Simulated scan of single mutants.
Amino acid sequence: MLSTIIVDDEPIVIDIIRKIVSQNLLELNIVGHALNLDDAKKLINKYRPTVLLLDVEVGNRESFELVKDLDYPHEKIFLSSNREYAYNAFMHNAAGFVLKPFNKEELINTLTAALAKIKSNSQLPEPAGGQKASKDFIAVSSFDSYEIIKLNELMYCTAEGKYTHFKLKNGRKILSSRHLGAYSNLLEHNKSFFRVSRSHIINFDFVIRIIKKDGLQCELSDGTIVSVSRRKALEFNNYIRLEDYS
């Protein structure tokens, strides 16, 4: 089952959504709800839910601020009585936008579409023995299409807000409309890729040198320098079997 949270400042709306989900969408497990964004943030940190159902206007704030820095794979559906928020919702990579007051069929259809998207983007489970599964390509969602990138041509990925930049060995750059966290597990199932920080995933096949300066830095074959964050240093050490670099 997919963990799900509901964020809305109207308890009656939360109750309606709970009832619709429990009767029609058994794949979703509602692990909690919040009436304000502070409580919603606590729920997200605790459960890292796969599906987020979010009223846009919660109190005097907007739930867009809640999701802008989420760095793990998830799908979000925004709800609002103001259709003008629809554009902003999809700019935040929403799986759907539901106009209030909504009917049961509309909510079910939107959630069903989100479930289909989750299944299509689902990661392969890690096989027994600790070996990472290997896949030789990744489908990258751009604004109007899916780009198919061969992993042996992908040098690194860089987060930029809610978008991700992909740099290929031929110099081509691809901008994805999804955040880096959406690709992290997919790439790291391939043993050549390592997430060195919150903002970078590198393909170690293109690393030509590791620089011991202010921690660790990786120099790639195109001259790009990428720093390893301090919180990832030990894991990185183990990944390439480095001795103490301090």
Rank of each mutant, 00 (worst) to 15 (best):
N121F: 03
P101V: 11
L66C: 05
M91P: 01
R231F: 08
Y146K: 12
I211S: 11
Y239T: 05
G161D: 01
M155E: 10
E243V: 13
A114V: 15
C218L: 15
S142T: 14
I20F: 09
A86S: 13
V228G: 14
D38C: 03
G59Y: 13
A86G: 03
L175Y: 00
G129C: 13
G129S: 13
F137P: 00
E243C: 14
A34N: 09
N24L: 09
T164M: 04
N109L: 14
K135Q: 13
L25N: 10
N45I: 05
D55R: 08
F90P: 03
P11Y: 10
N82C: 06
F194C: 09
V56H: 07
Y156C: 05
S141P: 01
F102D: 08
D9A: 05
L242E: 07
F236G: 13
E235H: 11
G96M: 10
A34P: 05
E243S: 15
A95T: 02
I30Y: 11
I201W: 01
K212M: 15
F143I: 00
L35C: 01
I12T: 15
K169F: 06
S229H: 14
Y156P: 05
V98C: 12
I108T: 07
D15W: 10
E105I: 04
E219K: 14
E75W: 04
L180F: 01
K104Q: 15
K173V: 11
I17D: 05
V207S: 04
I30C: 06
K173Q: 11
D71W: 01
L180Y: 02
R18H: 13
L186G: 00
A128I: 06
V196F: 12
H74L: 10
K117T: 13
I202F: 05
S122Y: 06
S229P: 12
I210N: 07
D38V: 15
S227T: 12
F236S: 09
K68A: 02
I108Y: 07
E75P: 03
F97C: 04
N36F: 02
L107E: 04
N24I: 10
C218H: 08
S229D: 12
